[in-house]
């Protein structure tokens, strides 16, 4: 009797709960639609418009913005430079972060917390202040050049900033945590006994790394590289401050179109080109590494 009564009640409750709970998603959904989807859609539409001097864009649709973005050697060079620097920054971050993450994942030291704080420290300072810190170190009269000059190692200051090198130094510094954290997560999930098993079977340390640790850390490598690449490709503050006017990259270029030349439709087209190429390369990279993980398997 009581069982019969309880059954429909519980079923009813079960079916009613999800719809109630899903209402809680609404604020986030509204936020995304109003502040992301709508503006993004607007940018896409704008990128097909004529420029105008009296309004954000003129009437009618055109492909000229994209033709210009993809055929003008100047803008193509900006695009290529952006991709090359992003790939280089990603590779440098990976090379630096891998040993650090491995050490953090395996260490028993009580300094582990401190090390962890050091890794996260670039994120504690605002981008602008961090970049001005780098200026103090990298500029012609900065710490490094002054020091080298003092010791008589150089006569003219080394060009450490207002070039690609300066941008890369700044980007590697700020995005290193985004590489270390996913790698650390992946490495912590590798059971140390796997490494011992490989050793007992005759593998040296380097072989253990290559055959066991690296393949099993691939999910971390994948998400770390994607994060750093995407962030580097769309970086604005660091290229502007450490690259100056000589190193032209995509994100500053887009801002320039919007804020200085007031070619909003062309700026929109540049932004869309960067977003699409970024998305395509991330997708291709994810596919490639996925295959690599299976291939190693």
């Amino acid at each position: 009797m009581s069982v019969d009564a309880a059954l429909p009640l519980s079923m009813e409750r079960k079916s009613r709960w999800p719809s109630q709970w899903s209402l809680l998603v609404l604020p986030a959904l509204v936020l995304v639609i109003v502040f992301l989807a709508v503006p993004y859609f607007n940018i896409v539409v704008m990128s097909f418009r004529q420029p105008s001097t009296t309004a954000p864009y003129g009437p009618g649709f055109t492909l000229t913005n994209y033709v210009k973005a993809l055929s003008d050697p100047f803008y193509l060079a900006v695009l290529v430079r952006t991709l090359v620097i992003s790939i280089a920054v990603t590779a440098l971050c990976l090379a630096i972060a891998f040993p650090v993450a491995y050490h953090l994942a395996r260490t028993q030291s009580r300094m582990r917390g401190l090390l962890f704080a050091c890794i996260l420290s670039p994120l504690l300072v605002s981008a602008v202040i961090r970049c001005y810190g780098w200026i103090i170190i990298l500029s012609n009269n900065g710490l490094i050049n002054a020091g080298l000059k003092q010791w008589g190692l150089i006569e003219r200051p080394l060009p450490l900033m207002y070039n690609e090198l300066g941008v890369m130094i700044g980007l590697v510094h700020i995005y290193l945590p985004f590489m270390v954290l996913p790698l650390l997560g992946a490495m912590q999930s590798i059971n140390p006994s796997l490494e011992e098993a490989a050793q007992s079977l005759g593998a040296r340390r380097l072989t253990v790394m290559r055959r066991v640790v690296v393949p099993l850390a691939m999910p971390g490598v994948q998400s770390g590289t994607i994060l750093v690449f995407v962030l580097s490709a769309s970086a604005y503050v660091t290229p502007v401050v450490l690259g100056g006017s000589r190193v032209k990259l995509m994100a500053p270029m887009v801002v320039q179109q919007l804020a200085e030349t007031f070619l909003w439709p062309f700026g929109a087209a540049l932004a869309i080109v960067l977003a699409v190429i970024g998305a395509v390369s991330v997708f291709a990279w994810a596919r490639a590494t996925q295959r690599l993980m299976k291939g190693e398997a």
Partner: peptide, 22 residues
Amino acid sequence: RPPEQRDIGLVFQNYALFPHMT
């Protein structure tokens, strides 16, 4: 001598099979 030069067969409690290998 390091472990890799001892010629030892080792079986772990958790088996420690390489999950990414057949």
